[in-house]
Amino acid sequence: MKTDVAPDPLAEALHFLRMTGTFYCRSELTAPWGMTLPAMADCLWFHIVTAGRCVLEVDGAEPRTLLPGDLALVPHGEGHRLRDVPDAPAPAIEGLPHDYVSDRYAVLRHGGGGAETTLVCGAVRFDHPTARSLVDVLPKIIHVEPAGSPQAEWTQSTLRLIAAEAGALRPGGEAVITRLSDILVVQGIRSWLEHDPSARTGWLGALRDKQIGRALTLVHRHPERGWTVASLAAELAMSRSAFAARFTELVGEPAMQYVTRWRMLVALDVLRHEGASVAELAGRLGYQSEAAFSRAFKRVVGVSPGAVKRSGPGLATW
């Protein structure tokens, strides 16, 4: 009897995009203006234009002109520039005056007094390390423009609500803006997944494959099971050799290497956030001994599980 899995492996993968807001900012800008935003490791920058226009520049990508209602994501946390025109000076944002509403939300006012542009910007960090499997394959910029689809209308309605809250920050407005912004980040990624041909290759293409996508979902849902190439192939009613070849072709690594790496990503998240002991975690992931688990963890992650547990969420690994 085959194991039930989610009908949409890609939707299940999006479940891992839970986020923690690092910093949010409402920017009130007047021409001429420009600013350079710093690189932030393991973060995704987003920019929502609520009035006016601007140019987004990321090294190695074509500049994008953003208009009211546009949403832009810089998925890899790269440093980048925003300005009203391409040749405007763009000083570091850290040196510009901010009015802090809280330790994570600020209002920035900057520029020369000309035409106005308002933005809601922010940086979010993905809590679950498995999200990197998805984020790593995203392009340097995702640009979501207004369009006529029902989903686009929902997105635009959300943008309008953010603009209204940003224009008159009322009690609780900061929480509304941050929650809606996080939703829009996921919507922006979903839009790219649905419309960009490059989202049909590599790991994302494997998730869309009827058979290999099912295998990936089984591994994601049940990392503790004693998976082998033969047992995964049997779940899919494929021969062992055909499954092994197709998995490697689509995913880019052998099936058992992927299983081990996924287990270690799950372990990394649990050690950082749940407080489980190394022995408990070894059992939860199907290892017969703490020593075997620790060896596998250090081989894949580069540090011991004990080092991650002692350091907490702040340890940079992988």
Rank of each mutant, 00 (worst) to 15 (best):
V5D: 02
D8E: 13
A11M: 13
F16Y: 15
L17T: 08
M19I: 03
C25L: 13
W33G: 02
G34L: 15
L37K: 04
P38H: 04
A39T: 10
M40G: 00
I48T: 05
A51T: 14
A51G: 11
A61R: 05
L67H: 13
L67V: 09
D70H: 14
L71A: 05
L71Y: 05
V74I: 12
E78H: 13
E78C: 08
G79V: 10
D87C: 01
A88L: 03
G95T: 15
L96V: 05
D99F: 15
V101W: 12
D103H: 12
V107P: 02
L108E: 12
R109I: 04
H110P: 06
G111T: 08
V120F: 03
G122K: 01
A123C: 13
P129C: 02
A131I: 04
S133H: 14
L134C: 02
L138A: 05
I142A: 05
E153V: 11
T155C: 07
Q156V: 01
S157G: 12
L161S: 07
E174A: 01
L180F: 01
S181Y: 04
I183Y: 05
V185H: 04
V185C: 08
G188S: 07
W192F: 02
L193N: 08
H195I: 05
P197T: 11
T201V: 14
W203N: 04
G205I: 14
A206P: 08
Q211I: 04
G213L: 12
P223V: 12
A233Y: 08
L236I: 06
A237P: 00
A237V: 09
M238T: 10
M238V: 10
R240E: 15
F243K: 10
A244V: 04
R246K: 14
R246S: 06
T248L: 15
E249R: 11
L250Q: 04
E253N: 06
T260C: 03
W262S: 00
L268H: 08
R272I: 03
H273Q: 11
S277L: 01
L281W: 07
A282T: 05
A282C: 10
Y287K: 06
E290K: 15
F293C: 09
F293G: 03
F297M: 01
K298C: 06
K298Y: 04
V300D: 06
G302L: 13
S304I: 07
G306R: 13
G306L: 12
K309V: 02
R310M: 08
S311N: 02
S311I: 01
P313A: 03
G314V: 10
